[in-house]
Simulated scan of single mutants.
Amino acid sequence: MLLLIALSHAPAFVDGDAGPAPLDAAARFLKSLLADNQARNMFVFLFGYGLVQLARRQEDRGAGWASVKSLLRRRALWLVVVGFLNTVLFVPIDIVAVYGLTLLLLAPLVRAREPVLWWTVALTLVPATLLLAWQSVMAQTRPSTIAEIMEPTLGAHLVASIPSWPAKTVVSVLIVVPAMFVGVLAARRRVLDEPERHLPLLRRVAVIGIGLAVAGRLPAALMAAGAWSTTSAPVSWAVAVAHDLTGYAGGVAMAAVVGLVAARIRRGRLVAALAALGQRSLTFYLFQALLWVVLFYPFALSLHDDMGQAATLGVAAGVWVLSVALADGMRALGHRGPAEILLRKLTYRSYGR
């Protein structure tokens, strides 16, 4: 999950194609096919899944639903705060506050009946896809990157994102709802908790979802790589809708692939290291954001003019490998992620535990 997020984010911090043209075209193709508007959906699916796990643990300890709902909302409020600070201090691409606001608004649905959840997914999927498609079409007509709006000084950087943050966060709630509540539905059945009991379902989801994602996202990936173009507005919209709609299927399918692997793989050092990173995902999501500032911003190392798309994907992969190594070291030393510790203390202190 964090690897895909890094692959999606890192290229946004460079000005253009400073590297070899074939490599940069291949990088844009892979980023569009694998990461854009798909990595987020895997992330959101797992967030929804985790909400049910959290609620289940509390109910197993004897907490009533009113108490659990209060806990979820308290957690949501602090996620909004963390996401705001991430946007202000680090980079203006944040999903944490969107998670928090969505949960704050829709916490009762975590326990809603399945038909209500399915209807919520269905009714939000179309407008969410159209919103994403509109963003994609705008990007086709006028490509833009964060590199274009990076501030030259730290002081200017710290205030630049504040005015647009509320509107961007509110609008983005719609985008995350479909995958989030599919994650809630999956958690009800313990699909990833007990993957060995759900292998046929996981296989179907993985095969169908990845098949749909590849077929639906390939035209946009070819456009991103410069291998194909169109001047037709209807075709541009069709390509964008297909890319972003099947990104939901692909995100859920990638989570299913992880479930299939988890059901078969033997635990070892590598698995333990990956699990350690997953247990500290918020910490290392923020760690990624910090590194983008250090590497690319004009008041830091200012590499945004010196790298092409392919190089940034290499940097993204390197950041992820470093994250795995650091998380594994923290595991070996018995240290939890500082962001997870802080979020838990803030949430449970107000919850009375």
Score class of each variant (00 low, 15 high):
residue 96 V to K: 08
residue 252 V to T: 05
residue 47 F to D: 06
residue 344 R to K: 12
residue 323 S to I: 01
residue 155 G to E: 07
residue 191 V to K: 10
residue 172 S to I: 12
residue 11 P to W: 05
residue 192 L to N: 03
residue 74 R to Q: 13
residue 168 K to R: 15
residue 312 T to L: 04
residue 24 D to T: 15
residue 350 S to A: 14
residue 177 V to S: 05
residue 233 A to R: 08
residue 243 H to C: 03
residue 307 M to H: 04
residue 184 V to M: 06
residue 181 F to I: 11
residue 182 V to R: 06
residue 207 V to G: 05
residue 297 Y to N: 04
residue 314 G to K: 13
residue 301 L to C: 05
residue 80 V to E: 03
residue 73 R to G: 09
residue 277 L to E: 00
residue 279 Q to F: 10
residue 238 A to S: 10
residue 56 R to G: 10
residue 79 L to Y: 05
residue 213 A to M: 11
residue 25 A to W: 12
residue 69 K to T: 07
residue 67 S to R: 14
residue 139 A to Y: 11
residue 55 A to P: 11
residue 157 H to S: 08
residue 139 A to F: 12
residue 327 A to Q: 01
residue 22 P to H: 03
residue 208 I to T: 09
residue 259 G to R: 12
residue 79 L to G: 00
residue 169 T to V: 15
residue 282 L to A: 08
residue 239 V to Y: 02
residue 320 W to G: 01
residue 306 D to M: 11
residue 200 P to Y: 07
residue 165 W to M: 09
residue 126 V to M: 00
residue 164 S to L: 13
residue 251 G to Q: 04
residue 310 A to G: 10
residue 285 Y to F: 13
residue 261 V to K: 00
residue 213 A to W: 15
residue 59 E to L: 08
residue 93 I to E: 01
residue 168 K to L: 15
residue 68 V to Q: 05
residue 88 V to P: 03
residue 105 L to E: 08
residue 158 L to M: 11
residue 248 Y to K: 06
residue 14 V to H: 01
residue 279 Q to Y: 08
residue 43 F to P: 01
residue 178 P to V: 00
residue 278 G to T: 02
residue 171 V to C: 07
residue 157 H to Q: 12
residue 141 T to E: 08
residue 219 P to D: 02
residue 266 R to K: 09
